[in-house]
Design a protein around this nucleic acid. Structure first.
Length: 269
DNA sequence: AGTCACCTGATT
DNA sequence: AATCAGGTGACT
């Protein structure tokens, strides 16, 4: 599921469901998902604590509990954090289960079980999140900042965008979409891109994420789940061999960093 | 900077 | 049977 817009929409929904509830007990079905901590630490830390805030930093969800405990949840590829009314609605792929005091349950549902959930004191958080670049909607994320960051690396620009320390929250889809809108070839070395193009890239990053965020919140907010095709209609992502919506050239797929990158060979040079 | 491992399910 | 997947951390 999740890049920044989807993670934010999960947070949005949790604020309307989990906020204020008290966790009675945690059950860990996949101990490795609490790595590098022991599952017992999670169980011990959450019992009897109330959820006081739901925050997001990059793709990380921060569940604030009273008594200065923060659960940091990362959904990775297929995770979802959601409240269900009762055990009858328990998905087969539930990996962590939190009983709430009103009979509902907060669950981490994650078919691939690649997600992570760890427990922290608030004092540890800055260190924990220090590798993350600015939030794309933060005033500090400016074209000048992007140019400065890009200037320091010879990495292909798409790899640069997906590296969370340039800017937090972009993943494979929205990095590709932003590059398409800015008409930049995904394999171009970041430091060789003109200031003019980087300015366009800055705008397209903010624009793509804004549109996707609204789409993700309305899709998830109503149905309570993401549904195929309700997202931002991708111009290039997943469209190998289909015509570019701008110039009709055939969309290409190339491997980058072990994943697929989609782009229009005519629009993006 | 590139490759692989972590996991499982869907698709070819 | 093989390949792919909206991610990341640990290796070369």
């Amino acid at each position: 599921m999740p890049e920044l817009p989807e993670v934010e929409s999960v947070c949005h929904r949790l604020r309307n469901t989990a906020l204020g509830a008290t966790i009675v007990r945690a059950t860990v079905y996949r101990p490795q998902m609490t790595h590098p901590q022991a599952p017992a630490k999670l169980r011990r830390s959450v019992a009897g604590r109330r959820i006081t805030a739901v925050e997001r930093r990059g793709k990380h969800i921060l569940l604030r509990l009273d008594g200065d405990i923060t659960l940091r949840v990362h959904l990775r590829m297929t995770g979802n954090l959601t409240v269900i009314p009762d055990a009858r609605l328990r998905p087969e792929t539930t990996r962590i289960w939190f009983d709430l005091d009103d009979g509902r349950a907060l669950i981490l549902n994650d078919p691939r079980a690649l997600g992570r959930i760890t427990v922290h004191r608030s004092a540890e958080l800055p260190d924990l999140l220090k590798g993350l670049g600015p939030e794309p909607f933060d005033p500090s994320f400016t074209p000048a900042y992007l140019a400065e960051a890009a200037g320091r690396t010879a990495k292909p620009v798409k790899i640069f965008l997906m590296d969370q320390k340039a800017v937090a929250g972009l993943g494979n889809i929205y990095a590709a979409e932003a590059l398409f809108q800015a008409r930049i070839h995904p394999a171009a070395p970041a430091r060789e891109i003109s200031a003019r193009k980087l300015k366009a890239l800055h705008s397209s990053i903010v624009g793509v994420l804004t549109t996707a965020l609204h789409s993700a919140i309305s899709a998830y907010g109503t149905a309570g789940r993401f549904t195929e095709g309700e997202f931002f209609p991708a111009a290039v992502y997943g469209r190998e061999d289909q015509p570019c919506p701008v110039c009709r050239a055939r969309i290409r797929r190339i491997p980058q960093g072990g994943r697929s990158t989609y782009f229009c060979p005519r629009c993006q040079r």
